[in-house]
Nucleic acid binder design. Structure first.
Lengths: 116, 116
DNA sequence: GTAATCAGTATCACAGAGTATACCAACTGC
DNA sequence: GCAGTTGGTATACTCTGTGATACTGATTAC
Protein backbone atom coordinates (compact mmCIF):
# COMPACT_ATOMS: atom_id res chain seq x y z
CA UNK A 1 0.00 0.00 0.00
CA UNK A 2 2.86 2.27 0.73
CA UNK A 3 4.35 1.30 -2.59
CA UNK A 4 1.09 2.08 -4.32
CA UNK A 5 1.28 5.69 -3.24
CA UNK A 6 4.96 5.94 -4.07
CA UNK A 7 4.66 4.67 -7.61
CA UNK A 8 1.45 6.42 -8.59
CA UNK A 9 1.45 8.16 -11.99
CA UNK A 10 4.65 6.46 -13.00
CA UNK A 11 3.64 6.11 -16.62
CA UNK A 12 2.48 9.70 -16.71
CA UNK A 13 5.76 10.91 -15.29
CA UNK A 14 7.76 9.01 -17.84
CA UNK A 15 5.64 10.61 -20.53
CA UNK A 16 6.22 14.07 -19.10
CA UNK A 17 9.93 13.36 -19.02
CA UNK A 18 9.94 12.23 -22.62
CA UNK A 19 7.99 15.33 -23.58
CA UNK A 20 10.61 17.52 -21.99
CA UNK A 21 13.47 15.64 -23.61
CA UNK A 22 11.68 15.90 -26.91
CA UNK A 23 11.24 19.66 -26.62
CA UNK A 24 14.86 20.40 -25.85
CA UNK A 25 16.43 17.31 -27.39
CA UNK A 26 18.45 16.99 -30.52
CA UNK A 27 21.73 18.54 -31.38
CA UNK A 28 20.82 22.16 -31.87
CA UNK A 29 17.97 23.35 -29.67
CA UNK A 30 20.07 24.27 -26.68
CA UNK A 31 22.74 26.07 -28.69
CA UNK A 32 19.96 28.03 -30.38
CA UNK A 33 18.34 29.01 -27.10
CA UNK A 34 21.77 29.94 -25.90
CA UNK A 35 22.46 32.10 -28.94
CA UNK A 36 19.16 33.92 -28.75
CA UNK A 37 19.48 34.50 -25.03
CA UNK A 38 22.87 35.96 -25.84
CA UNK A 39 21.27 38.69 -27.86
CA UNK A 40 21.23 37.34 -31.38
CA UNK A 41 17.96 38.13 -33.09
CA UNK A 42 18.34 37.78 -36.85
CA UNK A 43 18.35 34.48 -38.73
CA UNK A 44 21.79 34.87 -40.27
CA UNK A 45 23.12 36.29 -37.05
CA UNK A 46 22.03 33.22 -35.10
CA UNK A 47 23.31 30.99 -37.90
CA UNK A 48 26.76 32.56 -37.80
CA UNK A 49 26.90 32.34 -34.02
CA UNK A 50 26.47 28.57 -34.01
CA UNK A 51 29.39 26.83 -35.67
CA UNK A 52 28.40 23.88 -37.77
CA UNK A 53 24.68 24.47 -38.05
CA UNK A 54 23.10 24.57 -41.48
CA UNK A 55 20.34 26.93 -42.62
CA UNK A 56 18.11 23.93 -43.00
CA UNK A 57 18.55 22.76 -39.44
CA UNK A 58 18.27 26.26 -38.02
CA UNK A 59 15.08 26.86 -39.97
CA UNK A 60 13.52 23.60 -38.83
CA UNK A 61 14.47 23.99 -35.21
CA UNK A 62 13.29 27.58 -35.03
CA UNK A 63 9.90 26.53 -36.39
CA UNK A 64 9.58 23.75 -33.87
CA UNK A 65 10.65 25.97 -31.02
CA UNK A 66 8.18 28.61 -32.10
CA UNK A 67 5.43 26.00 -32.04
CA UNK A 68 6.51 25.06 -28.54
CA UNK A 69 6.51 28.73 -27.62
CA UNK A 70 10.11 28.78 -26.56
CA UNK A 71 10.79 31.63 -28.95
CA UNK A 72 8.82 34.37 -30.63
CA UNK A 73 9.17 35.25 -34.29
CA UNK A 74 8.34 38.77 -35.34
CA UNK A 75 8.20 40.00 -38.92
CA UNK A 76 8.60 43.68 -39.68
CA UNK A 77 7.33 43.99 -43.24
CA UNK A 78 9.19 47.19 -44.05
CA UNK A 79 11.02 47.73 -47.29
CA UNK A 80 13.56 44.99 -46.67
CA UNK A 81 11.55 42.47 -44.71
CA UNK A 82 13.05 42.07 -41.28
CA UNK A 83 12.62 39.02 -39.06
CA UNK A 84 13.49 38.90 -35.41
CA UNK A 85 13.61 36.01 -32.99
CA UNK A 86 13.55 36.34 -29.24
CA UNK A 87 13.22 34.01 -26.31
CA UNK A 88 9.91 34.08 -24.47
CA UNK A 89 9.51 34.47 -20.72
CA UNK A 90 8.27 30.90 -20.91
CA UNK A 91 11.59 29.80 -22.32
CA UNK A 92 13.19 31.21 -19.22
CA UNK A 93 11.15 28.91 -16.98
CA UNK A 94 13.53 26.31 -18.31
CA UNK A 95 16.50 28.28 -17.09
CA UNK A 96 17.03 26.43 -13.83
CA UNK A 97 16.91 23.06 -15.50
CA UNK A 98 19.44 24.25 -18.04
CA UNK A 99 21.75 25.44 -15.29
CA UNK A 100 21.34 22.17 -13.44
CA UNK A 101 22.07 20.23 -16.59
CA UNK A 102 25.17 22.29 -17.27
CA UNK A 103 26.46 21.57 -13.79
CA UNK A 104 25.63 17.90 -14.05
CA UNK A 105 27.27 17.65 -17.47
CA UNK A 106 30.47 19.16 -16.15
CA UNK A 107 30.54 16.90 -13.11
CA UNK A 108 29.68 13.91 -15.25
CA UNK A 109 32.65 14.53 -17.50
CA UNK A 110 35.00 14.68 -14.53
CA UNK A 111 33.37 11.65 -12.96
CA UNK A 112 33.63 9.50 -16.05
CA UNK A 113 37.20 10.53 -16.77
CA UNK A 114 38.43 10.00 -13.21
CA UNK A 115 36.93 6.58 -12.72
CA UNK A 116 37.74 5.32 -16.19
CA UNK B 1 33.52 44.19 -20.61
CA UNK B 2 30.50 43.40 -18.56
CA UNK B 3 29.31 41.28 -21.43
CA UNK B 4 32.65 39.51 -21.53
CA UNK B 5 32.17 38.23 -18.01
CA UNK B 6 28.55 37.35 -18.60
CA UNK B 7 29.13 35.26 -21.67
CA UNK B 8 32.34 33.53 -20.58
CA UNK B 9 32.53 29.77 -21.14
CA UNK B 10 29.47 29.85 -23.34
CA UNK B 11 30.82 27.21 -25.67
CA UNK B 12 31.85 25.04 -22.76
CA UNK B 13 28.43 25.30 -21.18
CA UNK B 14 26.70 24.32 -24.39
CA UNK B 15 28.99 21.31 -24.56
CA UNK B 16 28.19 20.33 -20.99
CA UNK B 17 24.51 20.63 -21.82
CA UNK B 18 24.86 18.46 -24.87
CA UNK B 19 26.78 15.91 -22.83
CA UNK B 20 23.93 15.73 -20.36
CA UNK B 21 21.34 15.41 -23.09
CA UNK B 22 23.42 12.73 -24.69
CA UNK B 23 23.65 10.70 -21.50
CA UNK B 24 19.93 10.70 -20.79
CA UNK B 25 18.69 11.26 -24.33
CA UNK B 26 16.95 8.86 -26.62
CA UNK B 27 13.66 7.20 -26.20
CA UNK B 28 14.36 4.69 -23.46
CA UNK B 29 16.98 5.84 -20.95
CA UNK B 30 14.62 7.71 -18.65
CA UNK B 31 12.00 4.96 -18.62
CA UNK B 32 14.75 2.51 -17.74
CA UNK B 33 16.08 4.64 -14.90
CA UNK B 34 12.54 5.02 -13.76
CA UNK B 35 11.90 1.30 -13.83
CA UNK B 36 15.06 0.43 -11.94
CA UNK B 37 14.45 3.13 -9.35
CA UNK B 38 11.06 1.57 -8.94
CA UNK B 39 12.60 -1.63 -7.73
CA UNK B 40 12.93 -3.72 -10.86
CA UNK B 41 16.25 -5.53 -10.90
CA UNK B 42 16.16 -8.39 -13.36
CA UNK B 43 16.46 -8.03 -17.13
CA UNK B 44 13.14 -9.57 -18.05
CA UNK B 45 11.51 -7.77 -15.16
CA UNK B 46 12.66 -4.41 -16.44
CA UNK B 47 11.72 -5.41 -19.96
CA UNK B 48 8.19 -6.31 -18.94
CA UNK B 49 7.80 -3.08 -16.97
CA UNK B 50 8.46 -0.88 -20.00
CA UNK B 51 5.78 -1.29 -22.62
CA UNK B 52 7.11 -1.29 -26.15
CA UNK B 53 10.78 -1.75 -25.48
CA UNK B 54 12.60 -4.59 -27.22
CA UNK B 55 15.28 -6.81 -25.72
CA UNK B 56 17.76 -5.34 -28.14
CA UNK B 57 17.12 -1.75 -27.10
CA UNK B 58 17.08 -2.63 -23.42
CA UNK B 59 20.34 -4.51 -23.76
CA UNK B 60 22.01 -1.66 -25.61
CA UNK B 61 20.80 1.05 -23.28
CA UNK B 62 21.73 -0.88 -20.16
CA UNK B 63 25.27 -1.31 -21.48
CA UNK B 64 25.58 2.36 -22.27
CA UNK B 65 24.19 3.37 -18.91
CA UNK B 66 26.54 1.01 -17.16
CA UNK B 67 29.44 2.64 -18.98
CA UNK B 68 28.17 5.99 -17.83
CA UNK B 69 27.88 4.62 -14.33
CA UNK B 70 24.23 5.35 -13.99
CA UNK B 71 23.52 1.74 -13.13
CA UNK B 72 25.42 -1.18 -11.72
CA UNK B 73 25.27 -4.69 -13.13
CA UNK B 74 25.95 -7.55 -10.77
CA UNK B 75 26.25 -11.17 -11.78
CA UNK B 76 25.65 -13.90 -9.23
CA UNK B 77 27.15 -17.00 -10.83
CA UNK B 78 25.13 -19.48 -8.87
CA UNK B 79 23.49 -22.50 -10.43
CA UNK B 80 21.12 -20.48 -12.61
CA UNK B 81 23.18 -17.39 -13.34
CA UNK B 82 21.46 -14.36 -11.88
CA UNK B 83 21.94 -10.80 -13.08
CA UNK B 84 20.80 -7.75 -11.18
CA UNK B 85 20.70 -4.13 -12.18
CA UNK B 86 20.50 -1.28 -9.73
CA UNK B 87 20.78 2.47 -9.89
CA UNK B 88 23.95 3.96 -8.49
CA UNK B 89 24.09 6.78 -5.94
CA UNK B 90 25.52 8.75 -8.83
CA UNK B 91 22.37 8.15 -10.82
CA UNK B 92 20.48 9.72 -7.98
CA UNK B 93 22.43 12.97 -8.35
CA UNK B 94 20.32 13.34 -11.42
CA UNK B 95 17.16 12.94 -9.39
CA UNK B 96 16.41 16.62 -8.95
CA UNK B 97 16.83 17.31 -12.63
CA UNK B 98 14.49 14.47 -13.43
CA UNK B 99 11.90 15.82 -11.04
CA UNK B 100 12.28 19.30 -12.50
CA UNK B 101 11.91 17.90 -16.00
CA UNK B 102 8.81 15.99 -15.03
CA UNK B 103 7.24 19.15 -13.64
CA UNK B 104 8.26 21.19 -16.64
CA UNK B 105 6.95 18.55 -19.01
CA UNK B 106 3.57 18.53 -17.31
CA UNK B 107 3.32 22.30 -17.29
CA UNK B 108 4.48 22.44 -20.88
CA UNK B 109 1.72 20.13 -21.99
CA UNK B 110 -0.90 22.29 -20.29
CA UNK B 111 0.69 25.45 -21.65
CA UNK B 112 0.81 24.23 -25.22
CA UNK B 113 -2.72 22.85 -25.13
CA UNK B 114 -4.26 25.94 -23.55
CA UNK B 115 -2.69 28.48 -25.86
CA UNK B 116 -3.10 26.38 -28.99
C1' DG C 1 25.26 45.07 -64.32
C1' DT C 2 27.28 42.34 -60.69
C1' DA C 3 27.94 40.97 -56.22
C1' DA C 4 26.29 40.50 -51.68
C1' DT C 5 22.93 40.05 -48.00
C1' DC C 6 18.50 38.71 -46.17
C1' DA C 7 15.25 34.74 -44.79
C1' DG C 8 14.64 31.02 -45.89
C1' DT C 9 13.10 26.37 -49.23
C1' DA C 10 14.14 22.15 -52.17
C1' DT C 11 16.43 18.04 -53.10
C1' DC C 12 19.32 14.33 -52.26
C1' DA C 13 22.06 11.36 -49.38
C1' DC C 14 23.62 9.02 -45.29
C1' DA C 15 24.31 7.21 -40.56
C1' DG C 16 22.40 5.94 -36.67
C1' DA C 17 18.39 5.22 -33.74
C1' DG C 18 14.85 2.21 -33.27
C1' DT C 19 11.86 -2.08 -34.68
C1' DA C 20 10.86 -7.04 -35.73
C1' DT C 21 11.90 -11.50 -35.41
C1' DA C 22 14.41 -15.33 -34.59
C1' DC C 23 17.71 -17.61 -32.10
C1' DC C 24 21.14 -19.40 -28.29
C1' DA C 25 22.75 -22.06 -23.96
C1' DA C 26 21.74 -23.05 -19.41
C1' DC C 27 18.47 -24.16 -16.19
C1' DT C 28 13.56 -25.32 -13.89
C1' DG C 29 9.25 -27.54 -13.65
C1' DC C 30 6.22 -31.13 -14.92
C1' DG D 1 11.02 -35.74 -22.86
C1' DC D 2 9.00 -30.98 -23.57
C1' DA D 3 7.67 -26.36 -22.45
C1' DG D 4 9.01 -22.24 -20.25
C1' DT D 5 12.11 -18.88 -18.15
C1' DT D 6 16.55 -16.28 -17.96
C1' DG D 7 19.94 -13.03 -20.06
C1' DG D 8 20.86 -11.85 -23.70
C1' DT D 9 22.91 -11.89 -29.30
C1' DA D 10 22.23 -11.88 -34.55
C1' DT D 11 20.22 -10.33 -38.62
C1' DA D 12 17.58 -7.56 -41.32
C1' DC D 13 14.82 -3.87 -41.87
C1' DT D 14 12.66 1.03 -41.50
C1' DC D 15 12.52 5.59 -40.44
C1' DT D 16 14.07 9.89 -38.52
C1' DG D 17 17.60 13.32 -37.74
C1' DT D 18 21.16 15.47 -39.73
C1' DG D 19 24.21 17.05 -43.45
C1' DA D 20 25.57 18.99 -48.20
C1' DT D 21 24.47 21.65 -51.76
C1' DA D 22 21.99 24.45 -54.54
C1' DC D 23 18.51 27.71 -55.23
C1' DT D 24 14.84 31.64 -54.80
C1' DG D 25 13.09 36.63 -54.81
C1' DA D 26 13.63 40.87 -52.82
C1' DT D 27 16.74 44.40 -51.63
C1' DT D 28 21.04 47.15 -51.17
C1' DA D 29 25.75 48.39 -52.34
C1' DC D 30 29.28 49.35 -55.72
Amino acid sequence: MVKATLVRNQAEEVKALQDTIYVIGGKWKLPIINSICNGNKRFREIERSIPGITTRMLSRELKEMEMNKLIKRTVYPDSPVLVEYESTPYCKTFGNIILAMIEWGKEHKKYIQEEA
